[in-house]
Amino acid sequence: MTTELQTGQRLWQDLAARGEVQGERPDHTHTPWAVRCLMGAAGWLGALFFQLFLVGTVFVAARENGIAMAVTGLAMIALAALLYWRGGGIAAGQFALAVSLSGQGMAVFGLVEALGFTRVTESAGFWAGLALFEAALALLVPNRLHRLLCAVGAWIGLAGAMHLVLAGSEPDDWLLLTWSLGWLVPLGCALVTGFTLAEARLCAAGRHTLLEPLADATLLFTLAVALVVTGMSHPLAWLGGPEAGRIPLAHWVAGGLATVVLAGFALAECRRLALSPALQGAVLAGVAAFGALMAAAPAVVAGVLALGLALRRASMPWLGLGIASIAVGFIWYYSALHWTLLAKSATLAVAGALLLAGRYRLLRTRTGKEAA
Rank of each mutant, 00 (worst) to 15 (best):
G19Q: 04
W332Y: 06
G329M: 00
V304T: 15
V35R: 01
P213A: 02
T7G: 05
G110D: 04
E134N: 08
R86W: 06
W179F: 02
R359W: 13
R63K: 10
C150H: 07
R313D: 03
I156W: 00
L273G: 07
D27E: 09
L214M: 14
V225G: 04
G46D: 10
G129M: 08
V225N: 04
R10S: 13
G110N: 10
G308F: 13
L115A: 00
A80Q: 04
F221L: 00
A357F: 13
F109G: 12
Y360D: 10
W33P: 02
D27K: 10
A42G: 08
A372F: 07
L184T: 01
G182D: 14
A17I: 06
A42S: 15
R18P: 00
A285T: 15
A288N: 10
L15D: 09
Y333V: 14
V141N: 14
L79I: 01
F59A: 13
T29F: 11
G241R: 02
A343I: 02
S345P: 09
I247N: 05
G87K: 12
Q9D: 13
H251Q: 15
R25I: 06
L311P: 06
F59P: 00
I90S: 04
A107K: 02
L267G: 09
V228M: 11
L307E: 12
Y360I: 15
R359P: 02
A124V: 08
A128L: 11
G168N: 12
L54V: 13
L311T: 06
G116K: 00
W12R: 01
A371N: 11
T193K: 09
A215I: 08
V165M: 13
A62G: 03
L38E: 14
C270T: 10
W12K: 05
A310H: 02
P186F: 00
G352H: 07
A371G: 12
T367I: 09
V301Y: 09
V283N: 02
L355V: 13
A114W: 10
N143K: 08
V165N: 15
A135Q: 08
T259D: 11
V120Y: 08
V71G: 05
V350Y: 02
L275A: 15
C37D: 11
P171L: 11
T259G: 15
L177Q: 12
G245M: 07
R312N: 14
A47E: 07
Y360E: 07
G110Q: 05
D173N: 15
T222P: 15
W33N: 04
W238I: 14
R361F: 07
A215T: 01
A327P: 03
A324P: 01
I90Y: 06
A80E: 00
L267Q: 15
C203R: 11
L191H: 15
P186E: 10
W155H: 03
L175S: 11
T7P: 04
V21H: 00
V165G: 11
A244R: 07
T367P: 05
Q94L: 10
A159P: 09
L341M: 12
G40Y: 01
G329N: 06
M39H: 11
A128F: 11
F109K: 02
M106R: 06
E269Q: 12
